[in-house]
Design a protein around this nucleic acid. Sequence first.
DNA 1: AAGTGGTCTAGACCACAGC
DNA 2: CTGTGGTCTAGACCACTTG
Lengths: 257, 257
Amino acid sequence: MTASDRSSQQPASRRIADALRASIERGELEAGQKLPSERALAEQYGAARNTAREAIRLLAEQGLVTAKQGRGVFVREPQRLFRFGSDRYSIANRETGLTPFRLEAKKQGKVPRIDVLSITREVPPSDVAERLQVPADSESVVHRENHYFADDEPVQIVSTYLRWEEAEGTLLMQAKSGPNGIYGRLEELGHVMTRVRDEISARMPSPEEARVLDLLPGVPVLEVLHTSLDQNSEPFEVSRYVHRADQTGLLYELPVS
Amino acid sequence: MTASDRSSQQPASRRIADALRASIERGELEAGQKLPSERALAEQYGAARNTAREAIRLLAEQGLVTAKQGRGVFVREPQRLFRFGSDRYSIANRETGLTPFRLEAKKQGKVPRIDVLSITREVPPSDVAERLQVPADSESVVHRENHYFADDEPVQIVSTYLRWEEAEGTLLMQAKSGPNGIYGRLEELGHVMTRVRDEISARMPSPEEARVLDLLPGVPVLEVLHTSLDQNSEPFEVSRYVHRADQTGLLYELPVS
DNA sequence: AAGTGGTCTAGACCACAGC
DNA sequence: CTGTGGTCTAGACCACTTG
């Protein structure tokens, strides 16, 4: 028993939203189906159109429905999750020659694409500087920004930060960084990835992120701040992953001491 | 350079929102400070109050500002994160006699509280049944629902599922489950926690979750579906954690094979 | 009492979908 | 052309907070 019988006392927009939500949960309105139009809802409940509109907004904020201009409001389809596991850092996967993203995409029968947006020398953000142990007040890092797509749909934004002193003049400054990607080059520089630290948070996207990831209202992002540690427990690479949360999950499997 | 000079062409509500966002990012409006009232904004921009209101809603959806009835709209304060690490499952922590949550709370100088809401025999949700390897069509599990607080502020909802056949008649059915909590009892039943699998996703809260966690609009939740595996790689416990994302982060530190 | 956000009304014009 | 959501106006009353 949640909430149902306080029909009075509630704002009209809430009551309309609750009725629609109940319809969806009972399966009367199935995924992909169209809701009554705003004008129809308003008439049906004896309210103004703005009130019906407010009800629909409440549902959209929860990610339950999606409005499409000129067409109508539809019950959102459950999305299959694109899953990123802790084994994405595993060396075993490295031997296939495919990056973890390409592997996962193949598994789901989708066509992966990675756009390299920029590779520039920069002043690092403070959280990155702290974790990579470099100065936050000089151009101490190389920033590689990539966008990942599956079947031309954007999935994640990845910003990778490397020490400028190490990357200068190497393939780490090139879009095509050679066999096994940047981790291959970093290994040649003497950094064997031994441990990783992933710090995970969730938040609503910035307008810029919503645009790049093509996010509908009511969809949050998952942010992973990843640090790679080498055989000497020295951090040698930090990446910020921004995933769209409606199509992405994370999987961590680990031993317990 | 993001977007600034397309002042025309943009809806008025967007322009007002962008102007306010810029003010906040430039630091003219600091965290905790009050925005101009909706009526003042409307007059200032020569728009109707509803239009100014829409602008504020855009900012609230991103979690940038918070409206307080009768008082005003305020720039949201950055929250300190309550951090849950992968070491929360570690045996080392078990020896302190404190659960990981109590430990973390102590570290931050907050007073922890755990409410046991219910302990009931139930039909498991399908995702839980699959992971615990029990039938999804009979009352095969015990469901323990707990709410966690720090300084009386809700932090997370935890639903733990155990096999009914193992829990029946034991302390696992009691609110106070004895030394080292339920993991202590499960160890006595022959389950040594050897590996864990955490599946992480983010989404907007249901109305029920928003109520329990006292969530402001524009704050998503982090959901962790946790499976404990014993020395035989058998799953013996599944929990669903629902964290408020504005005050919670997750930390995973793991070796790379 | 005055000011604030929360909700609502009854209109209006626009841009986009689909027939 | 018609129906849809997107945006906007100019009012109104309510509930809450503060002086």
